[in-house]
Computed example of a mutant assay.
Amino acid sequence: MDITAFLHWLKDTMACTGQTTKNRIIRFQKQGDYRRFLQEWSEAATNFPALKPVKQMRIIRAISCQLPVEATLSGFSGGVWIENDRRITVHHTAVKTMPLEKGIPWGVQQIKAPLAWSITTGHRIKIGVIDTGVDFSHPDLRQSLSRGINLLNRSMLPHDDNGHGTHIAGTIAAANQVHGMIGIAPRAQILPVKAFDHNGSAFVSDIILGIDWCVRNRVHIINMSFGMKTRSKALLNAITNAYNAGVIVVASSGNDGKRRSVDYPARYPQTISVGATNKLRRIAPFSNRGTFIDIYAPGDKIFSAWLRGKYHEMSGTSMATSHVSGAIALLLAHKPGLSPAEIKAILKKSYLPLRSTKAPRYTGELDVMKMLGAAER
């Protein structure tokens, strides 16, 4: 592929003014072409400021940038692919401010996490939470957080300006049982990756950058409490590369109450897809369900940490996903080195059947003690 010609095309196309533009992802077929492009691009960007907004996604040999809607890559067919850089949103429904509830949250109790704490607390397991950031000042999270990264503003910490990411982090690894709340894996480490804005919205390219960062920083688990209706080859490629690197990707199925469909990326087989249950151990009415679901976990009226040291009750498959990520952290601390495929198999053979005559028989609700037992066999 003629990289110089492609770079000239990109420079001229990005410099076009007065045209409607949208975010695009351009993937290179060959590693050598991508390497040459990055080298030439870094030199050209100093002379042509229009090229500077290009984002590199090394994990999938791609870039993202804004291009005119009419732009096509017909002159470079075979060497590069292009797809729209779609918007993706966090998964939750109702939000309700709550006073601090003393004791262990019901979801943490329901999956039997406290019974496992004499065996494992998730010590040294790193969980990348790709979300809206986290409240670094929350007293229940201080012991559980590392610096992470802010993909929307690299010069700042990934501070949460929405609340969703803080809620997820609290369920996974809050560690303040005496004065606050406790999560499922209180000695696990959260690496917050801020890819979502204050509205809980992100571009697929930012998710891919987050996955790339997690893989390079050797996280064990990535929590993905978000989704979209359309398939993205670029996102699948990034998740497949993470999976092949041994990273467990846990994804929420979506809140549309659908019986035969789940959102992407939970629909990809390289993820562990999660549906939500309620206190009665039934599938929550809002939860997507069906054969694409690998495991169910508590997701209805979940109490957890919130901004400015507060607490909120939230519902959604997002909340269920954080229970599963925490449980896998307990498992990995106890049995290091399990592959993503082995962990999925353990979850699928250790679930508790759901309460309902119509409940599916091929999956059920997360049970930490049964999960740990299945890992021994």
Results as ranks from 00 to 15, higher is better:
G148R: 07
I127D: 02
D131K: 00
S146F: 11
D160Q: 07
G107N: 04
R124G: 12
I119K: 14
P139V: 10
D197H: 01
I207A: 03
L115H: 10
G180S: 06
I111D: 07
D135G: 06
Q177W: 03
P186C: 08
I149T: 11
I111P: 07
Q189R: 13
P158D: 09
W106M: 05
I127V: 15
Q109T: 15
G128Q: 04
S205A: 13
P186D: 09
A185S: 11
A113Q: 01
R147C: 10
S205W: 10
H159F: 13
H159Q: 14
T120N: 06
R218C: 12
D161C: 10
T166E: 04
F203D: 04
N153M: 10
N162D: 14
A113F: 07
A185W: 01
L151T: 13
K194G: 02
Q143A: 15
D135N: 11
A202Q: 04
T166N: 00
A175P: 00
R216I: 12
L157S: 14
W117V: 13
A169I: 08
H164P: 00
G128N: 04
H220S: 14
I207Q: 09
I168K: 00
A116C: 13
H164F: 08
L152S: 06
V193K: 01
R142L: 13
L151Q: 01
A188S: 15
D206G: 03
F203N: 05
F136P: 00
